[in-house]
Amino acid sequence: MQTIIDGRFATPEETAETLGVPRSRLKKLLTITRSILNGDGAPGANGHTAKRRNKSYKVQLNFEKQSGAAKKSPSRKRHARGKLAKASR
């Protein structure tokens, strides 16, 4: 025999409160559910979706390029020569 439910439909806020999930964390969790429901895919551990991760990856690549260029500066070269000399001893 089926049991007929007459209670209210639980909201995420009510569920979180009952289970001791703090409001700040619930906010983060709802960001994850929203991105999944919107089809953006699951976010990473930092809460960023795939799109944003790609963007930050590109930024990182640019940074690497810049840092590569910076190595050519005379001061860096001097530094490298010094290190080489030390290592060869």
């Binding site: 569920t15 619930l26 994850i32 429901l37």
Partner: peptide, 19 residues
Amino acid sequence: ARVFGDVSAMAADFANKIV
């Protein structure tokens, strides 16, 4: 406890939007 709470809160959110 933490994962159980988090997963349940998310399931409640999905349920509210899907059902």
